[in-house]
Simulated assay, not measured.
Amino acid sequence: MRPVRTAARTAAAALLTAALGGVAGCGEDDPAAAYCGLVEEHQAELTDIVGGGGPDALLGALGIFRELQDQAPRDLADEWQQVVGRVAALDEALRAAGLDPAAYDREQPPAGLTDAERARVDAAARELVAPATTAAVGGLEQQARDVCGTPLVL
């Protein structure tokens, strides 16, 4: 089993679904229209980046997630902070260890990877799929249903 890859794929699917779910139902008079518009603007790009399901998909979408976080309604600040924070923590752990996220295999780590670096990457991957992050994704999904009027199917 490859926890970093599995965790990234699970989180990627949930985040893409949450982000894409916010598109429909956002009207011009809706206070979340700018946020919904931004989600719509990035829909195809997010589909390409995250939909590919590669181990580095979430990391490739981090810039878009940050932009969505910046435009999100205040009631989503905590959820986006959790999600962006966990993806960024994994990115930082991988970078600090000098690892290529697309090529990293936990079962066969590259020569020179220290136990501390491996532990940091593993911890970041676990946090990405932890209950707090899952709950944050659920909050984003709820917002998509309630504010943008779009039910999500996970």
Rank of each mutant, 00 (worst) to 15 (best):
M1P: 03
R2W: 03
P3M: 05
L20I: 10
L20E: 10
L20V: 11
G21P: 00
G22V: 00
G22M: 07
V23I: 13
A24R: 09
G25F: 00
G27L: 11
E28P: 14
D30K: 15
A32Y: 09
A32N: 12
A34Q: 13
A34P: 09
C36E: 00
L38C: 11
L38T: 10
V39E: 10
V39P: 00
V39Y: 03
H42V: 15
H42Y: 15
Q43S: 15
Q43F: 10
A44G: 11
A44P: 10
E45W: 14
E45R: 15
T47H: 07
I49H: 03
G53K: 04
G54N: 09
P55Y: 05
P55H: 08
A57H: 02
L58I: 01
L58F: 01
A61Y: 02
L62Y: 09
G63M: 13
I64N: 06
I64Y: 07
I64G: 04
R66V: 08
E67V: 10
L68S: 06
Q69A: 11
Q71T: 09
P73M: 02
D75E: 09
L76N: 03
A77C: 01
A77K: 02
E79L: 01
W80E: 01
W80M: 02
W80N: 03
W80H: 04
Q81I: 06
V83W: 01
V84C: 11
V84H: 10
G85Q: 07
R86C: 07
R86L: 04
A89F: 08
E92R: 14
L94H: 07
R95W: 09
R95V: 10
R95D: 11
R95E: 12
A97L: 05
L99S: 04
P101R: 03
P101L: 04
A103C: 14
Y104I: 05
Y104P: 06
D105R: 15
R106L: 14
R106W: 14
Q108H: 15
P109N: 14
P110A: 13
P110Y: 12
L113K: 13
D115G: 12
A116C: 06
A116T: 08
E117H: 10
R118D: 14
R118H: 15
R120L: 11
R120A: 15
V121R: 05
V121H: 05
V121E: 05
A125F: 08
A125I: 06
P131T: 07
A132L: 08
T133Y: 03
T133A: 03
A135F: 05
G138M: 08
G138A: 11
Q142N: 12
Q142A: 15
Q142V: 10
D146M: 09
T150C: 00
L152R: 02
V153I: 13
